[in-house]
Write a protein that binds this DNA or RNA. Structure first.
Length: 318
DNA sequence: TCCCAGGGAGGAT
DNA sequence: ATCCTCCATGGG
């Protein structure tokens, strides 16, 4: 973190022996494929602030070694020091970074010359699927991403936090804003939210969904118990939530790994690699990915997305 | 000025 | 079922 080591800072290390397979922390975080705002990066360290078990925790991560033989240094500091924070943080990191996902089986299963997906494995080894830790935050960010750039939905999310989230101070002198509570957003009008965040026409969806949650007509935690199809049906009834946004929340928020959000990039690369450029709709692309890759559809999407963007950048530079 | 960004709603065919 | 247009906003 910043400068001198502040009082109360603690640290621990996670080694590859505790994790099922490779990890490329940098690629994982910079892929920015998740449903919560991007992490900060200072001096080569990834930094995030989250509320764990009701306590605000600021932590930094650094990976040493290779994608297969590595240690992750974790330093953290919390608003109030209680025992059990380290355990909560370890659990948090396992979820957020997908450390329990069996990547080696994924590679093994699709490691074939005939499988276009295998082309992505060499450069992206250790790339993992990030998950959110706050269902409400994940859903709202997914809605914000609609017809928007990653940079801008992140900006809107930060404005949302700054305008309506709880302000917290850390012992190292820094301060931060947590993601707001649905009850707080439910009281706003779409116009008020719009004026503070520039969310555009998505402001109405944000307020609507927040009201449903505040009135307990929608219980996000209940959706975890449903299977992909059932949870999807519920989500698609929400204003501002279509197939793509629903799949984002199903995957990154609810952790339904068979969900494969199809955006312009995925649509492009799947059409090219699997359909010879033949026209196929987005919903059919999503269905294709689910049927072909099953529980690895979300991962297939993650790898193809990154691969598509890399090759496009390369083409543009050449 | 136009086009696009991790699309979706509402309507017409 | 599939196709069309409009939708706020900001960056290129």
């Amino acid at each position: 973190m910043d400068f001198a080591r502040p009082v109360g800072m603690r640290k621990f290390t996670i080694s590859n022996s505790e994790i099922g397979g490779p990890l490329n922390l940098k690629e994982t975080i910079l892929s920015a494929q998740t449903s919560e705002p991007e992490w900060a990066m200072h001096g080569g360290l990834f930094i995030n602030v989250k509320e764990l078990d009701g306590v605000a925790v600021k932590y930094s991560l650094n990976q040493r070694g290779t994608a297969d033989n590595y240690n992750i240094d974790v330093e953290f500091i919390s608003a109030s020091s209680t025992d059990g924070i380290e355990r909560a943080l370890r659990e948090h990191l396992n979820r957020v970074l997908g450390l329990r996902d069996d990547l080696l089986s994924f590679y093994r299963e699709y490691d074939s010359e005939k499988e276009p997906l295998s082309r992505t494995f060499r450069d992206l080894r250790g790339l993992r699927l990030m998950r959110g830790t706050n269902l409400y935050e994940s859903l709202l960010c997914s809605i914000l991403s609609q017809n928007n750039s990653a940079k801008r939905w992140n900006q809107i999310a930060r404005l949302l936090m700054k305008s309506y989230g709880r302000h917290i101070r850390l012992p190292d002198g820094s301060s931060s804003y947590l993601f707001p509570d649905p009850l707080k957003i439910a009281r706003l009008t779409a116009r008020e939210l719009q004026s503070k965040t520039s969310a555009g026409y998505r402001a109405k969806s944000i307020v609507d969904v927040s009201r449903l949650i505040a009135e307990k007509e929608l219980e996000l935690a209940e959706l975890v118990k449903l299977d992909y199809e059932r949870a999807s049906e519920v989500l698609l009834q929400l204003h501002g939530v279509g197939p793509k946004v629903a799949d984002c929340f199903l995957l990154y928020g609810l952790g339904k790994l068979e969900a494969a959000p199809v955006d312009v990039w995925i649509h492009r690369i799947v059409t090219k690699l699997y359909f010879g450029g033949r026209k196929i709709s987005r919903v059919n692309t999503a269905r294709f990915l689910r049927e072909r890759f099953g529980i690895w559809a979300g991962y297939a999407q993650l790898y193809l997305f990154d691969y598509a963007r890399r090759t496009t950048v390369m083409n543009n530079e050449s």
